[in-house]
Design a protein around this nucleic acid. Sequence first.
DNA 1: GCATCGAACTTTAGTGTTGAAGTCTTCAGG
DNA 2: CCTGAAGACTTCAACACTAAAGTTCGATGC
Lengths: 179, 179
Amino acid sequence: MSDTQEPSLDEQIAAYQREFRDLDPQVEQVVSALGRLNRRMNVAYGRQVAELGISNAEWEVLKHLVLSGAPYRLGPGELAKRLGLTPAAMTHRIDRMATEGLVTRDRDETNRVRVIVELTDEGRTKWLEAMRMATAFEEDLLQDLSSEERGALGEMLIRLLRRVEHAQPDAGGRLTDLG
Amino acid sequence: MSDTQEPSLDEQIAAYQREFRDLDPQVEQVVSALGRLNRRMNVAYGRQVAELGISNAEWEVLKHLVLSGAPYRLGPGELAKRLGLTPAAMTHRIDRMATEGLVTRDRDETNRVRVIVELTDEGRTKWLEAMRMATAFEEDLLQDLSSEERGALGEMLIRLLRRVEHAQPDAGGRLTDLG
DNA sequence: GCATCGAACTTTAGTGTTGAAGTCTTCAGG
DNA sequence: CCTGAAGACTTCAACACTAAAGTTCGATGC
């Protein structure tokens, strides 16, 4: 049936050049590689955390709670902002995670408008296990790069990051998660 | 209320090191920067194509049809595989895009099990406009990098890409889109 | 101290996605 | 031919997210 194959990166760039004459192949290579790499990595993360019985989405929440430092508490609104979700979506996500025992949800007794989401021991343990798997994967991923290369790569990525962040100064308000 | 701020990349890495002792900061910097950069870029793309009245999801479909080359035809199944969606989702997405006039959907007369999705002129025009905006954005993004740096960056990203693709040889079958 | 405004979260309606079951077409045997 | 099996897509039910409206509590002004 000669089923069309997933094009390689080079084939893809060549195709773009055929269809769109003023295209800088060097720029396109960077951008396309970035996009593909990220998607593959997210799939990999997803498979790993699935082994722990949690979804990528839940792992993100755990990450941000841990990042907030002990006692690992954040409000739904703050979590929503950091994850790039609407507060409504956050409400439901926390519901699920609370019934699964990963977090607790309580009203703030000093200000009963607010809600406090707090990591449980189980949630913290899950995060630790996920983190162990993730870092092992990341080490393996970067294995072919020397320390100098890693440094140069990180530095260039940060320069790009600064540029996007400056270019669109958080216009929408929501930040759509972090890495 | 001293509302917690979105942590900077450096703050985030420092927090991870506090919570997880064996963490290579250099690796984490690369990985975190990659993740953040990609998300910001996707938000930027989304805003741009929204000006054309299409969603990021629709733009992805247009991209893959164009990449397939004239006469810009692919089946729903093939599109689903390339976009990393289930066939069911593809069916609905094509529905919408067909009513919007971006693509046509027809049965293959030589094999009536198959369906052919074909780009319309309007769809091709939209893609072109989106492409113009995207490349302008990408040029701007990479502005601070010299040609040598761009080459080195692209080369390193491709090395990483090869590693993920090799590490998990398409295990699930679906490839979750490309860049 | 009562009414109003605003903040923080939840609820509701609508859209998009998944996984599983269903339909229709083709192909291979008998 | 007619049957059975496999392939390609669609339909259906359940779930997740968004935008907008609703609820509840706290603060401010009179």
